[in-house]
Amino acid sequence: MIQIMDLPPGLTHYLVVGALLFVLGLVGFLARRNMILMFLNAELMIQGVALNFVAFARHRGNLEGQGFVLFLLAVAACEAAIALALILVLYRTQHSLDVSLWQNLREEGLEPILDEEPLPLSPLEEKSPSLTVAGPGPAQPEETSHV
């Protein structure tokens, strides 16, 4: 039972996985423009943190770290609730989940940053696995950032 910890998946293994999850979430947060995906990526970062906590708790032999993870979950739930409501309201305003549409507030005199490069014309995107009944949506150039 105790011996098991001497075998390969040591603390550092878990920490590396936690760190990589955290960094992947960070990259996703920086790169993805869908507000929901940004939120989920932030949650991915938190998953990395949770893994760290549990790993440390295991190795420290006390449960404060595990307790902390529970609070992480509670706060994540709170934030999810607010994110959900907020994103819905924002969607109702702009009819898009694109976070780049919200760049009205910036230094005076700067130009808005627009998407210059056009998307490929053939939207051969497969339909979502189980959510949509309709076919793929046409490319909607009018939805690009036009703030």
Binding site: R33, L105, R106, E107, L110
Partner: peptide
């Protein structure tokens, strides 16, 4: 230094990271 403040959330997050 002003142009850094370009209004994009992700840009800010990038600067933070």
């Amino acid at each position: 230094f002003r142009p850094v403040q370009n209004g994009l959330v992700q840009f800010y997050a990038l600067a933070m990271a």
